[in-house]
Nucleic acid binder design. Structure first.
Lengths: 148, 148
DNA sequence: ACCACTATTTAGAATAATTCTAAATCTTGA
DNA sequence: TCAAGATTTAGAATTATTCTAAATAGTGGT
């Protein structure tokens, strides 16, 4: 799993985002956000839990889920669901898409995306479109080579 | 068990698709495919299991997963993962995208999609793009009305 | 500073989703 | 018919996520 030249959101942005959603700044939320920014490899909740524990041994799994939900809610983190496995979390809020290797399951950030305007999606009456999630499926370089 | 009779086009497509992937045609796979075509409401494995049991009470959950995997593998069914909940299954292989209501979780087919050419995605060397999955997120008409 | 109020965290239990296992059954081809 | 291999099955096991109720911590008003 790889990440290309990421711009991680700053910590002060954490404070304002949480505040804007009426949520408090807590050490646990700071730590979870920090973990996500440290290594932007789309970790699962479980992986976040393990990494968070290094500096905060008392943190619990339930809290990790709570924190992730809070961060998603205030717009600092994206949930990434690409297959039947565990949900992954992405702190890169820049527009980008995810490439998922159907063979080995690895995930890559692709700094390109399709904007709602570009796509010009026509929805039936009443639907309110918030954003477009683009997932690219195929083979990563390694698996493409093996498939030959 | 079924007697020899003219096969519906969709059913023969099941046969050829399975055969092309080196998979056998079995009553369970036929039933699961039938269930998906009967009501294309993006059911979860659990829902498929319950529906399949109506006409085939002995079928097991493990078999439903096996069959769904076989159908996905041979290109007759798409997996749809939109949130942290259970994976959904879609037998519509026409190009289309899914609208997911972030408030109530309902899923709608949108007969519009972004082709790889249109999107003109530039991938790093070695990646092989197979298809683009487009998920539209927002509010369905009901939830949009309530949000006012 | 003190108090009450509410948000948040916590451990662990509970539930949900999926995968595994090993035996039974079915299919196919020699 | 037989052997090999594919598929199904029930149930156990595992993994992922949510729930619960009690403890803790942060906030605003006095």
């Amino acid at each position: 799993m790889r990440t290309a030249s990421p711009k991680a959101p700053s910590e002060s942005s954490l404070d304002t985002h949480l505040a804007n959603s009426g949520l408090r700044v807590t050490p646990q939320r700071q730590r979870v956000h920090e973990v996500l920014r440290e290594k932007m490899d789309h970790p699962t909740a479980d992986q976040v839990f393990l990494r968070a524990k290094n500096k905060m041994p008392e943190i619990s799994m339930a809290t990790v889920y709570n924190c992730l939900d809070a961060l998603v809610q205030c717009g600092l983190v994206r949930q990434v669901t690409l297959d039947r496995g565990a949900t992954r979390y992405c702190p890169n809020m820049q527009d980008h898409s995810h490439f998922y290797c159907d063979a080995c399951g690895s995930v890559y950030d692709i700094l390109q995306t399709i904007s709602p305007e570009e796509a010009d999606i026509k929805l039936p009456r009443g639907f309110r479109l918030k954003n477009i999630e683009t997932n690219l499926h195929g083979l990563c370089p390694d698996c493409a080579a093996k498939a030959k």
